[in-house]
C-alpha cells in the first residue's frame, strides 16, 4: 500500500492523505483558465477561414507565380499584412491543434511533456524562419 506499483484494484484511487483522487478535488471548482485554449483555437480558426480563402484566391489572381511577380505582390502592405497574420495564425492554430491530439493519445505524463516541448520548439523555430523570410521580402523589396 506504499507505492503506486503495489496499489490493488479496490483502492487504486487511494492517495496518501486518505482521500481518493476525486475526493481531493471535489468542491474546489475549476481552475478558471481551462477554456482558454479551446477559445483561442476557435478564434484562430475563424481568422484562418478568412485568411486561407484570401491566400488561395490571391495566388489564383496573380498573372503567374514567378519569383518577381510574387515578390512584387507580397511587398505591398495589402498583401504583406494579411500574409504575416496568415503565417502567424497558421503556426498558432497548428500548435493548439497538435497539443489537443497529444493530450488525447499520449497517456504518459512524461511523454506528453516531451511531445509538447518538441512541438513547441518546432513551431516556434519554423514560424520564426517563415516570419524572417517575410521580413526579408518586404525590406528587400523596399531597398
Amino acid at each position: 500500500m506504499t507505492g503506486p506499483k503495489q496499489i490493488g484494484a479496490q483502492d487504486r484511487n487511494a492517495v496518501p492523505n486518505g482521500k481518493t483522487a476525486l475526493g481531493k478535488v471535489r468542491g474546489l471548482g475549476s481552475a478558471r483558465h481551462g477554456g482558454q485554449l479551446w477559445i483561442r483555437e476557435r478564434v484562430s480558426s475563424a481568422a484562418l477561414l478568412l485568411l486561407g480563402t484570401w491566400f488561395i484566391v490571391s495566388l489564383l489572381l496573380l498573372p503567374d507565380l514567378r519569383q518577381g511577380t510574387v515578390l512584387e505582390w507580397l511587398a505591398s502592405p495589402l498583401a504583406f499584412v494579411p500574409m504575416a497574420l496568415f503565417v502567424y495564425l497558421n503556426f498558432e492554430h497548428s500548435l493548439e491543434g497538435l497539443k489537443v491530439i497529444v493530450d488525447d493519445y499520449q497517456g504518459d505524463e512524461g511523454g506528453r511533456l516531451t511531445w509538447h516541448l518538441v512541438s513547441l520548439f518546432l513551431h516556434v523555430g519554423a514560424g520564426a524562419l517563415a516570419l524572417y523570410a517575410l521580413v526579408r521580402i518586404v525590406f528587400g523589396a523596399a531597398s
Binding site: 519569383q67 510574387v70 515578390l71 497548428s94 497538435l98 491530439i101 519554423a126 517563415a130 523570410a133 521580402i137
Partner: peptide, 24 residues
C-alpha cells in the same frame, strides 16, 4: 484530425520553404 496533422507538418513545412525560397 488527420488533415489537421497533414497540414501542420506538410503544409507548414511547405509554406516555410516557399517563403524562404521567395526571399532567397
Amino acid at each position: 484530425r488527420a488533415t489537421g496533422v497533414a497540414l501542420s507538418i506538410g503544409g507548414l513545412a511547405l509554406l516555410t520553404w516557399w517563403l524562404l525560397a521567395l526571399a532567397g
